[in-house]
């Protein structure tokens, strides 16, 4: 927990934050509406004798009482998919519509890409990209299990991604769920902080900036780009969005979210960020008893 001490000045009720980070996180699943309705998924879980609790911010997100969420009829049928509660947030903020062209830049293992497809009723084009070929097989497995037919899977570096292979030259929306230092997953992965270093944060921030810039360039004017990480480090969050604001035509916009969250920062260390970064969301483990997350919503302005 030592690395998290640096956030004491920016996190309210820091002791409750640390205490939450030390508590293991329970199982959560998302209902996959490509294959069934919310009602039928719940009835299937009840038939299985499983206890669940619906998240009050989203009826498709469930907390599940079981040691083996993968060995249930609802999972076998692809009615539910194991996905951490906060990990269901970015696609909801992205708000994709049926028939659109959407890019998930860092899509493996596919929980969010298939959620995007579900939000579009599996109608339209979801380009699910990942630079890691090893993780592409997990992405494809999940897409097929969940019945997502609107996915096109590519294996490239998102920073210099080419749309030449497709029959269109820009996206309506893009999700940058960036590779990060994963501090916010500490409740799921107790060793998440083992290799923590400021040097690592700095090098991953460079990659994040490159991916976010390319996502904005590849999205049409008036389109939406959502930037998210599962980490607390401002260098990987507000600083990355600030870099995009300074270099690409975009602005930070408000969004509604039924979860309790803290506003994005406007300063950290010696840096100051644009005041609109307060429109971003910092989701802390002690607020909703979840993992940690950062989400910002951008509108492309040219």
């Amino acid at each position: 927990m030592e690395p998290l001490e640096r956030y004491r000045p920016i996190i309210d009720d820091f002791d409750a934050f640390l205490e939450a980070c030390e508590r293991p996180l329970g199982n959560a699943v998302r209902i996959n509406t490509i294959k069934t309705s919310v009602e039928r998924a719940l009835a299937t879980l009840e038939e299985d004798g499983l206890e669940y609790e619906q998240a009050d911010w989203n009826p498709r997100v469930l907390r599940l009482e079981t040691d083996s969420p993968g060995s249930t009829w609802s999972s076998f049928h692809g009615f539910t998919h194991g996905q951490e509660e906060v990990s269901a947030v970015p696609p909801i903020v992205l708000d994709p519509q049926s028939g659109e062209r959407v890019w998930d830049c860092c899509a493996a293992p596919g929980g969010k890409a298939t959620q995007i497809a579900a939000l579009m009723d599996d109608e339209g084009t979801v380009v699910a990209n990942d630079n890691n070929l090893g993780r592409i097989s997990a992405l494809r497995f999940n897409a097929e299990r969940l019945g997502a037919t609107s996915l096109a899977v590519t294996n490239d570096d998102a920073r210099n991604y080419s749309l030449n292979r497709f029959s269109f030259d820009e996206f309506d929306r893009a999700l940058v769920d960036a590779p990060c230092s994963c501090e916010g997953t500490i409740r799921k992965n107790p060793d998440a902080l083992d290799n923590w270093s400021e040097g690592h944060i700095s090098s991953v921030a460079g990659i994040q900036k490159g991916i976010l810039r390319r996502a904005i360039q590849a999205t049409r004017e008036g389109g939406t780009v959502v930037y998210s990480t599962c980490t607390f480090a401002p260098e990987e969050n507000e600083a990355v969005v600030q870099h995009a604001l300074e270099n690409e035509p975009c602005r930070v916009v408000d969004f509604d979210l039924g979860l309790e969250y803290d506003p994005g920062l406007t300063e950290w260390d010696d840096e100051t960020y644009d005041s609109t970064l307060e429109r971003a969301a910092r989701i802390y483990p002690h607020r909703n008893d979840t993992g940690g997350f950062f989400v910002a919503k951008l509108e492309v302005t040219a």
Partner: peptide, 19 residues
């Protein structure tokens, strides 16, 4: 493979839709 999205033919990528 069955696919719901847009794509030109031929296409060299990892996957479209599902087998």
């Amino acid at each position: 493979w069955i696919y719901a999205g847009e794509a030109p033919t031929p296409l060299e990528i990892e996957a479209i839709g599902m087998t």
